[in-house]
Amino acid sequence: MGIRKREYSTQQEIIEGCIKREPTAQRKLYEIYAPRMLTLATRYSGDRERAKDVLHDGFITLFNKIESYGGFGSFEGWMRRIFVNTALMSLRKADVLRNSEQIDYASGEMSDAPDAVESISSKELMELIASMPDGFRLVFNMYAIEGYSHQEIAKELNISEGSSRSQLSRARAWLQERIRRQNEGERF
Protein backbone atom coordinates (compact mmCIF):
# COMPACT_ATOMS: atom_id res chain seq x y z
CA MET A 1 0.00 0.00 0.00
CA GLY A 2 3.08 2.20 0.13
CA ILE A 3 3.66 4.79 -2.50
CA ARG A 4 6.25 3.71 -4.99
CA LYS A 5 9.05 5.96 -6.08
CA ARG A 6 8.92 7.14 -9.64
CA GLU A 7 10.78 9.42 -11.96
CA TYR A 8 9.31 12.82 -12.71
CA SER A 9 10.33 14.08 -16.09
CA THR A 10 8.35 17.31 -16.27
CA GLN A 11 7.49 20.12 -13.92
CA GLN A 12 3.81 19.32 -14.40
CA GLU A 13 4.34 15.77 -13.12
CA ILE A 14 6.24 17.06 -10.10
CA ILE A 15 3.45 19.50 -9.27
CA GLU A 16 0.79 16.81 -9.65
CA GLY A 17 2.86 14.54 -7.42
CA CYS A 18 3.10 17.25 -4.78
CA ILE A 19 -0.66 17.78 -4.93
CA LYS A 20 -1.03 14.06 -4.21
CA ARG A 21 1.44 14.45 -1.33
CA GLU A 22 3.96 12.10 -2.89
CA PRO A 23 7.22 12.39 -0.91
CA THR A 24 9.39 11.75 -3.98
CA ALA A 25 7.79 14.62 -5.85
CA GLN A 26 8.14 16.92 -2.86
CA ARG A 27 11.80 16.07 -2.55
CA LYS A 28 12.32 16.66 -6.25
CA LEU A 29 10.63 20.06 -6.11
CA TYR A 30 12.78 21.01 -3.15
CA GLU A 31 15.98 19.97 -4.89
CA ILE A 32 15.16 22.03 -7.96
CA TYR A 33 14.04 25.24 -6.30
CA ALA A 34 15.61 25.33 -2.84
CA PRO A 35 18.95 26.92 -4.00
CA ARG A 36 17.21 29.84 -5.72
CA MET A 37 14.69 30.26 -2.91
CA LEU A 38 17.52 30.33 -0.38
CA THR A 39 19.13 33.17 -2.32
CA LEU A 40 15.81 35.01 -2.37
CA ALA A 41 15.36 34.48 1.36
CA THR A 42 18.89 35.73 2.05
CA ARG A 43 18.36 38.87 -0.07
CA TYR A 44 15.23 39.73 1.89
CA SER A 45 16.27 38.61 5.33
CA GLY A 46 19.72 40.07 5.43
CA ASP A 47 21.24 37.20 7.41
CA ARG A 48 21.75 33.52 6.81
CA GLU A 49 20.05 32.12 9.87
CA ARG A 50 16.82 33.96 9.26
CA ALA A 51 17.01 32.97 5.59
CA LYS A 52 17.12 29.28 6.58
CA ASP A 53 13.99 29.76 8.66
CA VAL A 54 12.28 31.46 5.74
CA LEU A 55 13.28 28.62 3.42
CA HIS A 56 11.93 26.06 5.88
CA ASP A 57 8.63 27.82 6.53
CA GLY A 58 8.21 28.74 2.88
CA PHE A 59 8.43 25.15 1.67
CA ILE A 60 5.98 23.93 4.30
CA THR A 61 3.52 26.62 3.21
CA LEU A 62 4.15 25.71 -0.42
CA PHE A 63 3.44 22.00 0.06
CA ASN A 64 0.32 22.73 2.07
CA LYS A 65 -1.05 25.22 -0.45
CA ILE A 66 0.11 23.78 -3.73
CA GLU A 67 -3.46 22.91 -4.73
CA SER A 68 -4.03 26.66 -5.00
CA TYR A 69 -1.72 26.82 -7.99
CA GLY A 70 -4.13 26.82 -10.89
CA GLY A 71 -1.70 25.38 -13.43
CA PHE A 72 -1.37 28.57 -15.40
CA GLY A 73 1.28 31.26 -15.39
CA SER A 74 4.80 30.76 -14.11
CA PHE A 75 5.03 28.25 -11.30
CA GLU A 76 8.31 29.75 -10.15
CA GLY A 77 6.71 33.20 -10.11
CA TRP A 78 3.91 31.86 -7.95
CA MET A 79 6.42 30.12 -5.73
CA ARG A 80 8.55 33.26 -5.31
CA ARG A 81 5.56 35.15 -3.98
CA ILE A 82 5.16 32.57 -1.25
CA PHE A 83 8.76 33.01 -0.20
CA VAL A 84 8.62 36.81 -0.38
CA ASN A 85 5.54 36.74 1.82
CA THR A 86 7.20 34.36 4.26
CA ALA A 87 10.27 36.59 4.43
CA LEU A 88 8.18 39.70 5.05
CA MET A 89 6.25 37.94 7.81
CA SER A 90 9.51 36.91 9.39
CA LEU A 91 10.77 40.50 9.27
CA ARG A 92 7.52 41.79 10.73
CA LYS A 93 7.90 39.42 13.64
CA ALA A 94 11.41 40.73 14.20
CA ASP A 95 10.08 44.30 14.04
CA VAL A 96 12.44 45.15 11.22
CA LEU A 97 9.88 46.84 9.00
CA ARG A 98 8.92 49.50 11.56
CA ASN A 99 12.24 51.26 11.18
CA SER A 100 12.51 50.92 7.43
CA GLU A 101 11.49 54.51 6.68
CA GLN A 102 13.97 56.09 9.04
CA ILE A 103 16.99 55.23 6.97
CA ASP A 104 17.96 58.41 5.23
CA TYR A 105 21.49 58.35 4.14
CA ALA A 106 23.09 57.80 0.72
CA SER A 107 22.95 60.46 -1.90
CA GLY A 108 20.54 58.81 -4.34
CA GLU A 109 22.76 59.70 -7.27
CA MET A 110 23.03 57.03 -9.98
CA SER A 111 26.46 56.32 -11.39
CA ASP A 112 27.09 56.23 -15.14
CA ALA A 113 27.98 52.53 -15.23
CA PRO A 114 25.00 50.15 -15.11
CA ASP A 115 27.21 47.35 -16.41
CA ALA A 116 29.24 47.51 -13.20
CA VAL A 117 26.98 44.67 -12.07
CA GLU A 118 28.83 42.37 -14.43
CA SER A 119 32.18 43.06 -12.82
CA ILE A 120 31.52 41.09 -9.64
CA SER A 121 30.32 37.55 -9.02
CA SER A 122 26.70 36.65 -8.31
CA LYS A 123 27.61 35.57 -4.80
CA GLU A 124 29.29 38.90 -4.05
CA LEU A 125 26.32 40.71 -5.53
CA MET A 126 23.91 38.79 -3.36
CA GLU A 127 25.97 39.46 -0.26
CA LEU A 128 25.99 43.15 -1.07
CA ILE A 129 22.21 43.21 -1.43
CA ALA A 130 21.83 41.27 1.80
CA SER A 131 24.05 43.75 3.58
CA MET A 132 21.95 46.77 2.56
CA PRO A 133 20.10 48.63 5.31
CA ASP A 134 16.67 47.07 5.93
CA GLY A 135 14.56 49.73 4.22
CA PHE A 136 16.77 49.90 1.14
CA ARG A 137 17.01 46.16 0.89
CA LEU A 138 13.29 45.46 0.99
CA VAL A 139 12.25 48.21 -1.42
CA PHE A 140 15.05 47.38 -3.82
CA ASN A 141 14.29 43.64 -3.84
CA MET A 142 10.55 44.11 -4.22
CA TYR A 143 10.76 46.68 -6.97
CA ALA A 144 13.89 45.84 -8.97
CA ILE A 145 13.78 42.04 -8.78
CA GLU A 146 10.20 40.97 -7.98
CA GLY A 147 8.43 43.68 -9.98
CA TYR A 148 6.13 45.18 -7.37
CA SER A 149 4.83 48.70 -7.96
CA HIS A 150 5.56 51.53 -5.51
CA GLN A 151 1.90 51.52 -4.52
CA GLU A 152 2.07 47.87 -3.60
CA ILE A 153 5.37 48.28 -1.79
CA ALA A 154 3.99 51.21 0.17
CA LYS A 155 1.00 49.18 1.25
CA GLU A 156 3.06 46.15 2.11
CA LEU A 157 5.72 47.98 4.11
CA ASN A 158 3.33 50.56 5.51
CA ILE A 159 5.26 53.52 4.11
CA SER A 160 4.34 56.26 1.65
CA GLU A 161 4.80 55.85 -2.09
CA GLY A 162 7.17 58.80 -2.11
CA SER A 163 9.26 57.15 0.50
CA SER A 164 9.34 53.96 -1.54
CA ARG A 165 10.58 55.86 -4.61
CA SER A 166 13.13 57.75 -2.56
CA GLN A 167 14.48 54.65 -0.89
CA LEU A 168 14.70 52.82 -4.18
CA SER A 169 16.74 55.60 -5.69
CA ARG A 170 19.07 55.68 -2.72
CA ALA A 171 19.32 51.93 -2.63
CA ARG A 172 20.52 51.87 -6.23
CA ALA A 173 23.11 54.51 -5.50
CA TRP A 174 24.20 52.71 -2.36
CA LEU A 175 24.62 49.44 -4.21
CA GLN A 176 26.51 50.98 -7.11
CA GLU A 177 28.82 52.70 -4.72
CA ARG A 178 29.56 49.43 -2.95
CA ILE A 179 30.14 47.65 -6.25
CA ARG A 180 32.54 50.36 -7.31
CA ARG A 181 34.43 50.15 -4.05
CA GLN A 182 34.54 46.38 -4.27
CA ASN A 183 35.97 46.58 -7.75
CA GLU A 184 38.59 48.96 -6.44
CA GLY A 185 39.59 46.45 -3.80
CA GLU A 186 37.94 48.04 -0.81
CA ARG A 187 36.29 45.87 1.77
CA PHE A 188 33.48 46.88 4.10
Binding site: A34, P35, R36, L38, T39, T42, R43, M110, P114, D115, V117, E118, S122, K123, L125, M126, I129, Y143, A144, I145, R172, L175, Q176
Partner: peptide
Protein backbone atom coordinates in the same frame (compact mmCIF):
# COMPACT_ATOMS: atom_id res chain seq x y z
CA UNK B 1 20.81 48.37 -13.97
CA UNK B 2 17.72 46.72 -12.44
CA UNK B 3 17.32 44.27 -15.31
CA UNK B 4 20.94 43.15 -15.23
CA UNK B 5 20.80 42.70 -11.51
CA UNK B 6 17.48 40.82 -11.71
CA UNK B 7 18.88 38.37 -14.28
CA UNK B 8 21.92 37.70 -12.15
CA UNK B 9 19.91 37.14 -8.98
CA UNK B 10 17.14 34.99 -10.49
CA UNK B 11 19.63 32.52 -11.89
CA UNK B 12 21.84 32.35 -8.84
CA UNK B 13 21.32 29.72 -6.17
CA UNK B 14 23.12 28.30 -3.16
Amino acid sequence: FDNRLKQRMESYGE
